[in-house]
């Protein structure tokens, strides 16, 4: 861990302004991902802005009938919130499928969205990685890639986004509310929040320098049967090989988002549109254009089979 200076932010606007004015500044909230990476010098911020004392830890009803989730709401609290359990069960389920009880007690809503990939080469500073060190190449593409992405990849990067929560947020059409260093606020649809790697895999989100997440807003509940299925090698405390978030509506409609497949929570309009035609059609639409490696080609079959399983569950 390189040395850094530390400050505790007193207000969101001050935090954002400080982040812009201090070279190499990073916000820290839960720290469960950032400190992991700082110990390995994958992240080397010169200045840490601790946002934990900002009062962004509330979950409030919106005028539109949805929920505004403060950026600092811990994963445990979000999953346990009675309104979330009742109206957005897929989000509770996704959160509870992630990490461990200890990590969920610490990890925040905003931090979870900004989690970085678990690609093993990203984690090894002695190896090429375009995401960690732009221009050095991608060791994963011809390397060990069983856990890596088959959708939305580029010639520069095949990393996956590791979050479970973000997959459910994507399914629910959440928006990410931010404040810029100049005080401007905006809302970013989650579909646009995470970037695909293209030739800039180091740029992972739509956030501008210094821009601070204030909250994540969920639109009003959509009802239906909520399912989050996470497939992994061990029964708990593991990242997804594939995960599927789904909401089935009584009219045979449905919507689907996927984790473990892509550099961002993966959702395809055509897959939602195919809901009435069943799991196979949804899988074909969702996986259109897949680029697989020898190691991760199984994810296509696994995704289709997982969809078959949750269709069976939803219709049981």
């Amino acid at each position: 861990m390189k040395t850094f200076t530390y400050e505790r932010a007193e207000s969101p606007a001050q935090a954002a302004a400080a982040a812009l004015s201090r070279p190499g500044a990073r916000f820290i909230a839960g720290g469960t991902n950032l400190l992991d990476l700082m110990k390995l010098q994958i992240e080397t911020p010169a200045h840490l802005i601790d946002v934990n004392r900002l009062e962004l830890d509330k979950i409030e009803a919106t005028n539109e009938g949805g929920l505004r989730i403060g950026a600092l709401v811990r994963n445990t609290d979000l999953a346990a919130d009675k309104r979330v359990r009742r109206d957005y069960a897929v989000l509770s389920r996704a959160l509870l499928a992630g990490a461990s009880g200890q990590l969920r007690n610490k990890a925040t809503t905003a931090g979870n969205l900004l989690q970085r990939t678990r690609c093993p080469y990203f984690y090894d500073t002695t190896k090429p990685c375009n995401k960690r060190k732009p221009g050095t190449g991608c060791a994963a593409m011809k390397g060990i890639s069983r856990n890596l992405a088959i959708m939305g990849t580029s010639d520069a990067c095949i990393a996956t986004h590791p979050s479970d929560m973000a997959v459910a947020m994507r399914l629910l059409d959440a928006t990410v509310d931010t404040v810029a260093p100049n005080g401007t606020k905006r809302s970013i649809p989650i579909a646009d929040f995470h970037r695909l790697p293209g030739d800039r895999p180091e740029v992972e989100s739509a956030l501008a320098p210094g821009e601070l997440i204030l909250s994540v807003t969920l639109p009003k509940p959509i009802g239906g049967t909520h399912i989050y299925r996470k497939v992994r090698d061990r029964a708990s405390y593991a990242f997804a090989l594939v995960s599927v978030a789904a909401v089935f509506t009584p009219d045979k409609g449905g919507r689907f988002a996927f984790g473990g497949l892509a550099p961002k929570p993966w959702r395809v309009d055509a897959a939602d549109a195919a809901a009435a035609q069943g799991a196979k059609a949804v899988a074909e639409a969702a996986l259109s254009g897949a680029r697989t490696t020898r190691d991760n080609a199984f994810k296509k079959d696994l995704t289709a089979r997982t969809l078959a399983s949750i269709f069976a569950e939803a219709r049981a």
């Binding site: 069943g278 199984f298 079959d301 078959a308």
Partner: peptide, 13 residues
Amino acid sequence: DKILRGLPEPAFA
């Protein structure tokens, strides 16, 4: 992934 290679195709709902 190894098990899936041998499992029959499931019923697709």
